[in-house]
Each structure stands twice: as structure tokens, then as C-alpha cells.
Design a protein around this nucleic acid. Structure first.
Lengths: 346, 346
DNA sequence: ATGAAAGCGCTAACAG
DNA sequence: CTGTTAGCGCTTTCAT
């Protein structure tokens, strides 16, 4: 029973005194094979422990039944929910998934793209690294008409699809919420504004200010990578502002949590002195004190949508290029950190 | 330039008037091919846009240069750090990674194993689902001598390797730390004790009690899945205990954070009334108040170790079976939540 | 309804 | 140092 040679359709064919082609057909449930033979072949295959050879098939069919994923950073709560969404759909539809990790580096992203291309994935779902600007590494896919779906960013590549949330709207909603709470001097802490998702949230922030005729003050916008150190520094800068802002919109929950801690450490009350709203709906938001108001980031749903769309494209259900952007609904989650005017959301 | 037929070594061969084998060899930098020819072949290959066909090679070589990963849950901070470690090593050594997600279900784990087997991965790194008991789904790998590395759990499968931390020791250290802080009535909150890692931590807890001649009280041990609801309930049960425990060892940081929040909400001081220590060193621990003492879980290092070991095995550097367990060093991280006797760790 | 035969692209003996 | 040859296991016309 151990380490025996692999069973092939030839073995089954010989065993049953039929031709390999018949076996091949039968295994695909081809109706041109008589029901009897089909049944017999299925039984023998199972009994002999046959398993089809994926690469022989791939070699023949020029397709791998595999989706490649380029994750901008695996070490990221948002990312893992996206991945689990992709995984789910891929599993349901018989695709395998190869996941690569760009670790926030555009250079690594390019390497990953090449790697996936080499592996002849049937399609790609990519989330771009923050500093990714070039699109050259996607050219091979485009030339071979391998479908590309971008998550959480618009690539600018024609014929590619993007699954996104409306970041501008989210930024607008978050900021408006603060304004409704009575904030008039609202700071914004954001990672690298070269990254679309952040610049759009920033736009939303600006829109909300404009709409409420709150003058824009450049000194209120702080750029800080979502690390502990950078976020702490941003918090310090905010505390140094005169007069102190009465609200802060932070583009990610982790940074928001760090800011809140920093504020509290310095005797500034949240939301009493400063109302804070974050972004993502990380689990962290429910555990810190005060609990964090935030914008929900529907990662799993985005992953599912991206995968489903890609699979449809691969199976020919959707015309390539007929859909260029899928926008997933988000919602505001109001908790304690932003409730300045005392009304409880419940 | 668009959608042209794939370039093969035959095209290169024809172009250069050499044989395909020479091309094949040259591309592998085989020294039996003259330097000149090699160089010429490399150049032409690049210029013609050749990319090697992985499945043709796989078909020939009976190996895929791919590592399969079975993740017990992608939605998990610990898991993503493990994955990024695996990814890193795989990338460095020219392996691809196929990641599958068991979503905490043993049934899905079995499906994933089958999927990876179908895909003929060269080796597997698996973290077992909490309720995984059967090992039958790994039998195909064993029969084909496909190396198996388990992360964070011992499979009981001969010839497989496990990369673990010393959970018993960690439990012991965490509990001892509480005892050193003056705790004498220490509760333990743990997920499913059927899962090795938790039962071992529990053992460590018991050992520490024993060593310090603290009588064991069964009512102090609470089982709770690491969800918000269950953790909250566990916290409530602890608060109902008479007398109130003066320390709690929680087997994961998230649950610990929930417990602390619950304690504080009910006017119980942490660490004043109850000292708390968690497990994993999630980012959350630094952001809650009080900051959370914990045991560091070296996920990335474990992933790297597992992958490196697997690759060594695949490349024949290590004898299969010569190493059965690799234990990664961990350390205690003391923050505020456990500091009952006022000595600051700094 | 089934079979024969040709190849998908690559590699590894075995010859030269 | 290079070429010839024979497959790896499967699918798919084209016949029958």
C-alpha cells in the first residue's frame, strides 16, 4: 500500500479494457460515454486510488485553475479578512489560491507579480503596495489577457476591475459625524497620502469641512505611518496645536487607538476634549476605552466580491471590461470616542 | 506584441540552431553547456519573452516547487505572522506557497489536505484546527513520503516534524509571574482544552500552583472560546467567584483584553484587585489600559523555522525523521496589567 | 459509443 | 560539449 506508482488513466483503461480516451471522457462525466461504462470507470478509479494529475491537465488545457493573490501586507487585520473572503469563494468554485505577500514594498510586489505570472495563474487579485506607482509588472498579464482584479485601489489599467469602498464618501461621513458632534476644529491623521485610499478619505474630509463652511487649516493634517511610533508622534503634534483641536479623524483604527492612549496619558479627555473617529472597524476598537467610533471596512465581503467577479470572468460569465469598478457598501459605527454631545447612539 | 503564442525552448532552439536539450540545460545554467552558448541562449530567451512552463516541468520532474499551507484560521493575528514567516523563506528558496484556510473546522481541514494533495505540493505546513482529532486526511502525504511540518501542535504522526513553543513552560512562567506578584488565588481562562496548546498551558499553570503549594481549585478554571461574548461571560463568572481571585491567566490576549474591560466596567481594579496576564503579544496589549502583560508568541519565527525545515527536507539537507520537534524560544512581556506589587519592570 | 494518435513543454538518459 | 529520443499524464480531434 505504500509509495506505489501513481495510478493513471492508462492503468484504469487497461484494467477495464477500454481506451484511455474513454476513461478521460468518463471522468469528466461526458455523456457520449455510455452510462454503464462511466459508472464502471468511476468505481474502478476510486478503487484503484486514482487522482487526476493537475499539471498534465494544465499542460494540455493551458489553464491552472489557480488564482494568484498579491497581498500588500499579510500582517494586517484588514488583509486577512479579505483573504478569507477570497479563499471561501475560490474553494467553492474549485480554484486554488496562491498568496504572495508584498510586505508593503512595491519592489516585492513586482517580484510577486512575476512569480504568479510564471506560475501561470488564471487570474490575479491584487492589493497594491502603498508606494506602488509603476504598473509595468502587470503588463504581462494584460498582454496575455489574464484578468486582473484590484482590491481597494484603482489601478488605472484598462480592462481591469477594482473592488473598492467609496473612500471619499467614508471620509466625508466620518468627518461629518464629528461635525455633527459639535467639532469645529478637526485634525486628520493619515498614512501616506500618495496611496489612493488615503488621499480619497482626505478628500472626503475636505468636502465635509467645505460643506459646513469650516475653514481648512493645513496644520491640522498629519501624515503618519500606521506604526506605534509614528502615531504617537502625530498625537503629540496634535496636542501641541493651539488651540487644541476638538476632533480627530484618523484613517486607521490602530493609529486612532494609539492617539487616544496618548491623549489620555496627557490628561486630555476623549471624547470630552477631543472626539476621535478611526477607520476599519478593527477588533481593537471595542476593547480600548473609550470604545472607538469608526468606519466599517468590509474586508471579507470585498474579498468575496473580488473572487467571485474574477471567477465569473474566468468562466466567461462576465464580459471582460464590462465592469470596471465594484463598490462595496460601508457603514459608520458610532461608539464612545466620538460622542461629544452626549447623545448615546443606542 | 499582444497575445502571441507562448515561446518554448523549441522556438529558442530553432532560432539559435541548437537542440532543445541544450536550451533546457543552458537555462538551468548547466556547466556542461559552453559559456558562450549559455549566454547566447539566455539573451535570446529574454529577448523572445520566454518563460518556462512550470507544469511541463512539474509533469516531468514530479515535483511542483510548491509548499502547501493549512492554516487553522486566516482571521487571526498569530496566523498571519506565521504566514509571513513562511512566505519569506519560501520566496527566498524559490518555492511557491498555496495557502488554505480551515476556518477553525476539522472538516474543512480535511478538505484542504485533499486539495493540496491533488495539487501535488512538495510538502505541507499545517496548523491543526482546534477540533481536529483524526489524522486520516494526512495519510496520503505520509504514503507518498511528502514531508509534513506541523506548527503549534504535535500531530502524533511519525516522521513528521513539529515546530512549537513550549506551551507548558509558558503557562508555568505566566502563572509564576502572577504568584511572584503576590497572587494566591489565580483563575485560568482558556479556549477548548482538547487543543494541545491550551491543555499544555493549563498544565503549566497547574505546575506553577503545585510548586508554590497553592491548592488547586477547579472552579477557577473557565473554558471560553476566544470570542467577545464567551470571554465576557468568563469574566462575569470570575467576578461571581467568592472570594474574588487576585490573578487571572488568560490563554490569549484578546480574551484577556475583554476580561480586563469587563472587570473595569464593574469597578474591579486591574491590577489592583486582579492581576491579569494574557498570551500571544498581540498588538492590542499595548493599547488597552492598563497595558497587558503577556507571553510573546513568536509567530513569524515559527513560520520561518517551519518553512526552512521543510525546504531543507525537500532539498535533502536534513534526514526525514531525524528531527521531530523544534521548539522556539518565547519570553514573558511584563506590562501594567500584572504588576500588583508596584515594582515597575523598567 | 469508443479508439487511435498526436501533442501540450519540458527533462533526462544515452549517444555521440 | 551537444543532439536524439522517449516519455511525464492528459485531452482532443478525427476516425470508426
Amino acid at each position: 500500500m505504500d509509495n506505489q506508482k501513481e495510478v493513471t488513466i492508462y492503468d484504469i483503461a487497461r484494467n477495464l479494457k477500454v481506451s484511455p480516451s474513454t476513461v478521460s471522457r468518463a471522468l469528466k462525466d461526458d455523456p457520449t460515454v455510455s452510462k454503464k461504462t462511466r459508472k464502471k470507470i468511476f468505481e474502478t478509479a476510486a478503487q484503484m486510488g486514482y487522482r487526476s494529475n493537475l499539471f498534465a491537465r494544465s499542460l494540455r488545457q493551458q489553464s491552472t485553475s489557480t488564482i494568484g493573490v498579491i497581498a500588500f501586507d499579510l500582517n494586517n487585520g484588514v488583509m486577512s479578512s479579505i483573504l478569507s473572503g477570497i479563499e471561501k469563494i475560490a474553494n467553492e468554485t474549485g480554484y486554488g489560491v496562491i498568496i504572495t505577500d508584498s510586505s508593503l514594498s512595491a519592489a516585492k510586489e513586482a517580484l510577486n507579480a512575476e512569480n504568479l505570472f510564471q506560475r501561470r495563474v488564471d487570474g490575479v487579485i491584487a492589493s497594491l503596495a502603498p508606494d506602488s506607482k509603476e504598473r509595468d509588472h502587470f503588463k504581462p498579464f494584460i498582454e496575455k489577457h489574464i484578468p486582473l482584479v484590484f482590491i481597494d485601489g484603482v489601478s488605472g489599467i484598462p480592462d481591469s476591475t477594482s473592488v473598492i469602498i467609496d473612500n471619499a464618501m467614508c471620509g466625508y461621513i466620518a468627518t461629518t459625524h464629528l461635525i455633527e458632534q459639535g467639532c469645529r476644529r478637526i485634525a486628520h491623521v493619515t498614512p501616506d497620502l500618495r496611496h489612493d485610499i488615503y488621499s480619497l478619505r482626505y478628500e472626503g474630509y475636505l468636502d465635509a469641512l467645505r460643506e459646513n463652511e469650516i475653514p481648512f487649516d493645513e496644520s491640522l493634517v498629519l501624515t503618519a505611518a500606521p506604526t506605534e511610533e509614528a502615531s504617537e508622534e502625530a498625537a503629540k503634534k496634535i496636542m501641541d496645536l493651539k488651540p487644541l483641536p476638538d476632533g480627530v479623524f484618523v484613517s486607521n483604527d490602530f493609529a486612532a487607538a494609539v492617539c487616544i492612549r496618548s491623549f489620555l496619558d496627557h490628561g486630555i479627555k476623549v471624547p470630552g476634549d477631543v472626539a476621535v473617529i478611526g477607520f476599519n472597524n478593527d477588533v481593537i476598537g471595542k476593547l480600548i476605552s473609550p470604545t472607538l467610533s469608526t468606519v466599517n471596512y468590509p474586508g471579507k465581503e470585498m474579498g468575496e466580491t473580488a473572487a467571485r467577479h474574477l471567477v465569473n470572468q474566468l468562466k466567461g460569465t462576465v464580459n471582460i471590461g464590462s465592469i470596471s469598478t465594484l463598490t462595496i457598501r460601508t457603514d459608520l459605527i458610532v461608539r464612545q470616542s466620538s460622542l461629544k454631545n452626549g447623545k448615546d447612539p443606542a
